[in-house]
């Protein structure tokens, strides 16, 4: 069996677009910038800048420490640690305390990535893993209503998903999709500015840095599931656009679910992977105990990804 396998040259799936790892990460960081700069730093001010800077720098520091401890070449230069730090900060509330950020980047880099052998070895998305562990431990710090209580902007500052959870659809009548798109909502530093995230995602998809199949299937999964719930009971379950433009949905679709080593590589698996993520997100939001299910849904699809990779084109010339 094994000796046979060695001689077979299969034609797919080799994904390569000619770019270097560091270049890819740089472009993903560029794509995330509009959401952070306009949505986060502009809206939430100095504390948000502090959280982002601390998150990026400590993520890189943990990476360096782990490189040294494991006696491996220093891998900060590939930008992966900086990207993880940046994405992690985008999900946090602007007033997150310093120790929360440092613990979070520790969990993301050390437990989420380096333990599995560094870049490309992680079974789970490090950012989603870290956010999930922190959410379990410190629920109060992910309660955006309480964390952002000192901001008093000219729009409704209550966290939309919390309003949905507590009051049903009648609680979210005051929100408008337009507000969500231009970032007039409460949420994580980089998760509020809808247009910014969509532009960033579109740029990445067109340049081929992330796979459009995963992102679009994810959004379609959210849309279809939310639509079904909405059709069955419009009093309790919000319409699909609400789900797509609130919470972590957009950032999850474009930046978290598409992470390289934890997502599949073939066409059909990518579609299933994305759609399953969307389905889980809405299920957790509508039925589960958590307010936002995006990070948990992404961990679940990370789990099924090895199974999905079994669906693949038959190798040429292989005798079954």
């Amino acid at each position: 069996m094994n000796s046979q396998k060695k001689l077979i040259v299969s034609h797919a799936p080799f994904l390569h677009n000619g770019s270097k790892i560091s270049e890819r990460h740089l472009h993903i960081i560029y794509a995330a910038l509009p959401a952070i700069l306009l949505g986060g730093l502009f809206r939430f001010g100095i504390p948000a800048i502090g959280v982002v800077c601390l998150s990026v720098s400590t993520a890189m520091l943990w990476e360096l420490i782990m490189n040294r401890a494991m006696q491996r070449p220093v891998s900060i230069g590939d930008g992966n640690a900086a990207l993880i730090g940046l994405l992690f900060a985008m999900l946090l509330p602007a007033t997150a305390p310093w120790w929360l950020v440092i613990t979070g980047t520790f969990v993301a880099i050390v437990i989420g990535k380096q333990i599995f052998g560094g870049i490309g070895g992680n079974a789970f998305n490090p950012v989603a893993l870290s956010i999930a562990i922190l959410m379990v431990s410190w629920k109060d710090f992910f309660d955006f209503n309480a964390m952002l209580v000192n901001y008093d902007p000219d729009f409704i500052m209550a966290y939309p998903l919390a309003a949905l959870k507590n009051f049903g659809v009648s609680g979210i009548e005051k929100y408008s999709i337009g507000d969500f798109l231009v970032g007039r909502q409460s949420g994580g530093i980089g998760a509020t500015f809808g247009i910014g995230l969509i532009l960033g995602g579109a740029y990445l998809m067109i340049r081929g840095f992330i796979r459009w199949e995963i992102s679009l299937a994810y959004l379609a999964g959210v849309f279809v599931t939310a639509q079904l719930f909405n059709l069955i009971d419009p009093v309790h379950y919000a319409d699909p656009f609400f789900h797509i433009f609130t919470g972590y949905t957009l950032i999850g679709a474009f930046f978290l679910a598409t992470e390289d080593s934890s997502s599949p590589v073939n066409f059909i698996p990518m579609l299933i992977y994305g759609a399953a993520g969307g389905l889980m997100t809405v299920l957790i939001r509508n039925i589960g105990a958590y307010i936002d299910g995006t990070v948990l849904a992404i961990l679940v699809i990370n789990l099924i990804h090895p199974l999905l990779d079994k669906i693949r084109p038959k190798a040429m010339g292989k005798v079954v």
Binding site: A69, I111, L134, V136, S137, W138, F141
Partner: peptide, 26 residues
């Protein structure tokens, strides 16, 4: 102090044991 509740839960035990094993090997 805000307790890191994850550590006293069952998954925290596995992670913690793994990290300690890692330290001992180091």
């Amino acid at each position: 102090f805000q307790p890191f509740t994850f550590m006293v839960e069952a998954p925290g035990a596995f992670v913690c044991l793994g990290l300690m094993l890692c330290l001992m090997n180091l």
